[in-house]
Amino acid sequence: MSDTVALTTKKDWTSDQEVRWCPGCGDYGILTAVQMLMPEFGVAPENVVFVSGIGCSSRFPYYMNTYGVHSIHGRAPAVATGIAVARPDLDVWVITGDGDGLSIGGNHLIHALRRNVNLTILMFNNQIYGLTKGQYSPTSEQGKVTKSTPYGSLDQPFSPLSVALGAEASFVARTHDLDRKHMMAIFKAAHDHRGASFVEIFQNCNVFNDGAFEDITARDNRASMLIDLQHGQPVRFGADSERGVVMGTDGQLRIVNVADVGVDALLVHDMHRQDPSLAFALARLARDVHSPTPVGIFRAVDRGEYASDVSAQLLAASASKGPGDLATLLRSNGTWQVG
């Protein structure tokens, strides 16, 4: 383990491998944001591990000059949990996608979140299977016409944030691949959170699902379509912050004109609220990616982190029973002497 950390630059975090995503893929912007952010943490590259499953996004670890495991489809949270529990000193990231994390690996994702293992989980959501060349994914909108659904998909899509909140995630956020500054701010907060942090990134697949998020993330649309959540601030958006979110007497969140209700009527965002129901309501405010959609940190609450709790149990056991002695263990069920 290195105790002193030299200052690093983006170059120190970039591996010598050729990046092989399609030209124009949204993944490039995310990779750049992460590589630019890493020097800010003051951590040495040898103490960082990126773990991924299978899919376009899961090639990510090969491009980071850190330790990395490109594992099996859907299993990255399980492998990462083993690394983090074995070595709480490491900084462990999970890179996954909507198919990898919510379809084949859904079980591992929800359990890593409920246990609150100290992982920073970045889910690249492009609402499509890219690596297998264009089938619908668990986040694709109903009716999606793809190679595997020529008559339109029948499945109700998942909202990744609803899943994460339902799985008791202690940190839940959303950003998109076209805003590096926003991505870096969210990734930083996610990394600094102690426990499992889950970040959904709207990511454009320009080959199989081009423009999926354009209605809300295109530069000209952002002001009117992205609701940037700020802790302690009224939830409002628009070029002149002229629109906002209120909670009706029925408990439903609604988008209103601030002028109609007054600033005091607006919902004030509290990401530290223990009860997840408001975060859940915000996560479900937009039912598709064509209407005003909240981004930012939905929830960031403190609770016990799994790997350090595991270590604490080991220390407590050693303190109360003394360090294990093998010869004593082998005699613990009673012995008898012959001869």
Binding site: R75, A78, V79, T81, A84, V85, A86, H111, L314
Partner: peptide, 21 residues
């Protein structure tokens, strides 16, 4: 460290992660 995983796949996945570490 004993880790009761969510399924058989996570059980070996975590063990393999620990081996890497």
């Amino acid at each position: 460290r004993t880790f009761q995983a969510e399924d058989e796949i996570a059980a070996i996945g975590s063990a393999l992660g620990a081996a890497f570490a």
